[in-house]
Design a protein around this nucleic acid. Structure first.
Length: 590
RNA sequence: GCCGACGUAGCUCAACGGCAGAGCAAGCGAAUCAUAAUCGCUGGGUUACUGGUUCAAAUCCGGUCGUCGGCACCA
């Protein structure tokens, strides 16, 4: 039965390049999950996009002296190119500064208002009289009220590490021009989360299959929920759909609108592909499953706040009383460290993905980050590990297996899949084992145990290597009993064909090549394209997955006797031993 | 500061009340189809430290040390 699987991936802030931590946290796992389900023949809708708004973007833009929109456009484009190269197979990777996202976010705001989930409250905020604007906390500096460090930021003191209330700073000053801000009252809208406590508790208690860390955190917070402001006095963001001078200069708070992207991007995808109601197959179909792939810093937003918003807007753009779907699972990953220390952009301790892609194949990166994924606890990227995994596992166990059998077959059987004799017990045994792997490893993928799935796939490749130790083929056999060798090679090729499908979600580029070497003419997967879509006043570039030619399936090998094979190019590149030392030197480590 | 998670073989990780496991690395051996890639065997752990509960603790409880996250204008 064909299932509807929605793969929603955290929206990256477009204020800097993606780094290896982002990939390990959500982009690679989400892609593996989507590709696996596509092979299974399920209806997959995978969406994400650049987060255009938010203080981090304004801060970075101010630092560079450019408008926020310009900074955002630059990094959005880089996200498209980087993820295309990595093969993150989004049906749509868009952004939050589209007319579509703005309009739906405003509709959602109005619907929540109409249903009584929003209220207004006055807050005290720093205001700069010289700049004539309210200052976000991190734009205010002053003396720390706790340790008396003179240059504490309004949100946190860099000296003592305490989180601060900006209004407590001693001698506050604006970071931009040094002027002294004044305290002013300002009115904002709040989302009344307390109204959702009971349904959220019911929802969370039901999710016994979630990862422990993901479920426990919201369960411990859900009872204390209260209102949270959803508007700010800033100029970069989505305007409020309200009349009146009071609201003209305010924008939606980024946390409130960014998560809506999962829904708005689904709707945009439907529109772009000429089937405007198709998104409802994932959002209003009770049997559809929505998976949110995120990093652990995002857990509360994707287990409580987004759910509250969805509960509040149930029925939007839909006529009957079917409730809108809440996420089925939120397989959040923990963090990836770098050589034992936390990634830190400001200290230069990070690996940017565009940089990584200049020197390494996407599948080498995908393999390492999956074999070593932070699924249950924080994991570590270290260069020795990267080289070792690539050379000793990916290349030695899998790449070499495909290579040795293909080369032997081409040399000795006229470049074609040989006709086997009657299969012997050991041939039957290995084929049965690999076929069973489709099922058992499939279940691991399905349960989002991707690290375990990959480990099991490697173990299965080793089984085929063991088979090749026992079965007759090389040496005297090929000279004296070609029929026996043909049976072995035929069997091994079938196993490789299936293993290739099993590895394909993790290693899409390698899989595509091996698939072609095995003589298949149609690709396993579709391809990623950058497209431009025009709305009424502006256009935007997106990444889309075009799969009309994709023919790969999660199935028993259909290799035909006589099928034309092709001489393999280097399947996996061996990384030279100095790689790790070179990379550490590059990072400034002795 | 408050709340939470984690600390297991050289490395990366599993076991989550019942004899502490895997992969890689290391040592030895076999094989030669293959990118010197494969296969077999072997060695390797007072489960951070410390009290306690239990017939039995890596696992449950308390404390100490260390790492990390959340604490609502930094998702």
């Amino acid at each position: 039965m064909s299932e509807y699987i929605h793969v929603s991936v955290a929206w990256p802030y477009a204020n800097g390049d993606l780094h290896a931590g982002h990939l390990a946290g959500c982009y690679i796992p989400a892609d593996i999950y989507a590709r696996y389900h596509r092979l299974r023949g399920h209806h997959v809708l995978m969406v994400s996009g650049s987060d255009a708004h938010g203080t981090p973007i304004s801060v970075e833009a101010d630092k560079r002296g450019i408008p926020a929109a310009e900074l955002f456009t630059y990094y959005h484009k880089r996200f498209l190119e980087t993820q295309q190269k990595l093969g993150i197979s989004y049906d749509l990777f868009t952004h939050t500064d589209t007319e579509n996202h703005h309009r739906i976010a405003q509709d959602i705001f109005l619907l929540l208002l109409e249903r009584g989930y929003l209220y207004r409250e006055t807050q005290q905020q720093f205001y700069s009289e010289t700049e004539k604007r309210f200052l976000p906390d991190r734009y205010v500096e002053g003396e720390c009220p706790i340790c008396h460090f003179p240059d504490a930021r309004g949100d946190q003191c860099d000296n003592c590490g305490n989180l601060l209330n900006a209004l407590d700073l001693i001698n506050p000053r604006s970071k931009t021009d040094g002027s002294t801000p004044v305290i002013r009252e300002t009115e904002h809208y709040f989302l009344d989360l307390s109204k959702f406590i009971s349904p959220l508790e019911t929802y969370l208690k039901d999710k016994t299959y979630w990862r422990d860390q993901v479920r426990n955190e919201p369960l411990s917070k859900v009872k204390e929920l209260r209102g949270r402001p959803i508007t700010r006095d800033i100029d970069w963001g989505i305007p409020l759909p309200l009349d009146g001078e009071d609201w003209k200069d305010k924008r939606m708070y980024v946390w409130f609108e960014a998560v809506m992207g999962y829904l708005t991007a689904s709707i945009e995808w439907a529109k772009n592909t000429g089937q405007p109601d198709a998104w409802k197959q994932w959002w209003y179909n009770p049997n559809a499953k929505i998976y949110n792939f995120i990093g652990k810093d995002n857990i509360l937003f994707h287990t409580i706040i987004w759910q509250a918003e969805l509960l509040g807007i149930s029925g939007i753009y839909h006529d009957d009383h079917t409730p809108i779907n809440l996420p089925y699972d939120v397989p959040a990953n923990q963090y990836l460290n770098l050589e034992g220390k936390q990634f830190s952009k400001s200290r230069g301790w990070y690996i940017s993905v565009p940089d990584l892609l200049e020197r390494y194949d996407p599948d080498a990166i995908r393999f390492y980050l999956t074999a070593n994924a932070p699924e249950t606890s924080d994991a570590d990227w270290n260069w020795d590990g990267f080289v070792a995994r690539n050379n000793n596992e990916l290349l030695a166990k899998w790449g070499n297996l495909a290579n040795r059998v293909l080369k032997f077959a081409i040399k000795n059987f006229d470049g074609r899949v040989p006709e086997p004799g009657t299969l012997r017990p050991l041939d039957e045994e290995i084929i049965t084992k690999v076929e069973a792997g489709l099922d058992t490893i499939g279940r691991l993928y399905d349960a989002v145990k991707l690290r375990d799935a990959l480990q099991a796939a490697i173990a299965l490749a080793t089984e085929v290597n063991i088979y090749l130790e026992k079965a007759p083929w090389f040496g005297n056999v090929i000279k004296e009993d070609k029929q026996a060798a043909a049976t072995t090679i035929y069997t091994a090729l079938r196993c490789i064909d299936m293993l290739n499908r099993i590895f394909a979600p993790v290693l899409p580029f390698t899989a595509e090549r091996i698939h072609a070497y095995l003589g298949y003419t149609e690709p396993i997967f579709g391809e990623l394209l950058i497209r431009e879509y025009q709305e009424s006043t502006r256009s935007h570039e997106v990444l889309v997955y075009e799969d009309s030619k994709a023919a790969g399936a999660w199935e028993v090998s259909k290799l035909r006797v006589g099928q034309q094979l092709h001489e393999p190019e280097t399947i996996i590149k061996k990384l030279p031993p100095e790689t790790a030392a070179d990379e550490r030197a590059r990072m400034g480590v002795k």
